[in-house]
Design a binder for these strands. Structure first.
Lengths: 243, 243
DNA sequence: TCAAAAGTGTTTGTTATACACCCATGT
DNA sequence: ACATGGGTGTATAACAAACACTTTTGA
């Protein structure tokens, strides 16, 4: 990621002026989740100029005239992180009358789940521009962005239990313990290892890579990958994912 | 409901002109679900004037400058049905570039669940204006409204299994069979009566009214009401509603 | 007395939970 | 050898599914 991209992403969000060729009164904000170690993080940017200097915000921007909503969210995320085909879903539109200063702006929010190995930036690297922050313990955010984050975390916690979307936060190949820690991190709970393993293995959603972890100071775990095709098959047969 | 209200609701949706004092390029559309007999219905309006004459559409309209999104959705629903405090949740924003003719309009959709006893209009009553139509078998709809409906049904099917929202489709006092038929109607499945009863009774979410059905040609069933307070208690203790 | 729905009981197989245990590997 | 996590086994209790059955009521 170049700093030019970061400042482009930032300047798009400075209140006024809105760039030419974009929709009026309508913005996009992205909630970008990542898992670092066993902590759920969210990517924030620090406004470097303008009235909101030094304050933290969700990365966002404006929608172009000839661009679908999802395309806009996807472009903004790509400009910020370089990631091209993320898991990206619409969260909600936020449109309180006074949520944005001086003019009425409705924002449509998306949430993205990205894997640490696609975008391995750790907290502190580019602290003045963009930074991974613990999703459960962020600094104050501009506008209604805290409300958006709270809503997003709740949706994530609900979704992750009912749809197999958690895999998007892991590298392509992962161990069962990584998967368990993912659920523990998002749901803030402890799980029983043997039971967690069995539950997932019985679902037939994990394909063994016939490969083992490397460079660990203990017995190396088997690596698995999420079997998207089999998931499609199973759901057609009425299978319902529940953790 | 007066027909003045209906035509107000309709004229708000005629493509152009957009009334003064509303947000540009941003509309609201409501997906209003009701349960009639044991069939899931959706409330549609037929455009009576303009280019789209005779075509069916979701009821919707424009957002006022000094009105929150939810308020707008709520006002539009009230103007159409007279219902004031419905179950109303945001569905999704739809914003494909060419979804609306001639100009770019993003629509924010809400879905409402209303009970037949609050708004007992049955199919056919005001056929030229507004009509309840089987949710799974509607006529062609304008713009992307079919896509919105399909998305809404999917969300409803998912939500109803994971959150106790189905009660909003029933009268305040209902029998266990009505509750079962609700699930059968929304999910398009058959359920086993004894098992369904036990499952629900064990959740402690139903308070007996100590009252019986009246005017039925068979043994009268006990009436229950959804215990919202106890639901709050239970969820705080980690209870998770699943059907 | 019959139809229609209310409501109960029981059997069987499956799943969840808790927790004890052994295995493999790098330091 | 020991710490660390990988991975298996098992007893118990809870639950789901299937379905046979009795009860109540109005027509």
């Amino acid at each position: 990621m170049t700093s030019a991209l970061i400042s482009a992403a930032k300047s798009n969000r400075e209140p006024f002026p809105v760039p030419e060729g974009t929709l009026q009164g309508l913005s996009i904000d992205n909630l970008i989740f990542g898992l670092h170690g066993s902590e759920l993080k969210v990517l924030l940017i620090k406004h470097g100029e303008g009235i909101r200097e030094g304050e933290w915000a969700l990365p966002g921007g404006w929608i172009k005239q000839n661009e679908d909503l999802r395309e806009a969210a996807s472009r903004l995320l790509r400009d910020l992180t370089g990631i091209s085909h993320p898991y990206l879903e619409q969260l909600k539109a936020f449109g309180k009358v006074d949520r944005y200063p001086a003019e009425r702006v409705v924002t449509i929010t998306y949430y993205a789940l990205i894997s640490a190995d696609q975008y391995p930036l750790v907290a502190g690297f580019s602290a003045s521009d963009a930074s991974w922050v613990s999703a459960f313990d962020t600094p104050a955010l501009v506008f209604d962005h805290k409300e958006i984050l709270t809503y997003g975390i709740q949706l994530l916690q609900h979704q992750v239990r009912h749809k197999p979307i958690g895999f998007n936060l892991l590298p392509e190949k992962f161990t069962l313990l990584q998967l368990q820690e993912l659920y523990e991190a998002i749901l803030n709970i402890k799980l029983d290892k043997p039971n967690f393993r069995r539950k997932f293995m019985k679902m037939n959603l994990l394909t063994p890579c016939n490969e083992k972890q490397k460079g660990v100071a203990h017995r190396a775990a088997n690596l698995y990958r999420f079997d998207k095709d089999n998931y499609s098959n199973l759901t057609e047969q009425g299978f319902s994912f529940e953790v």
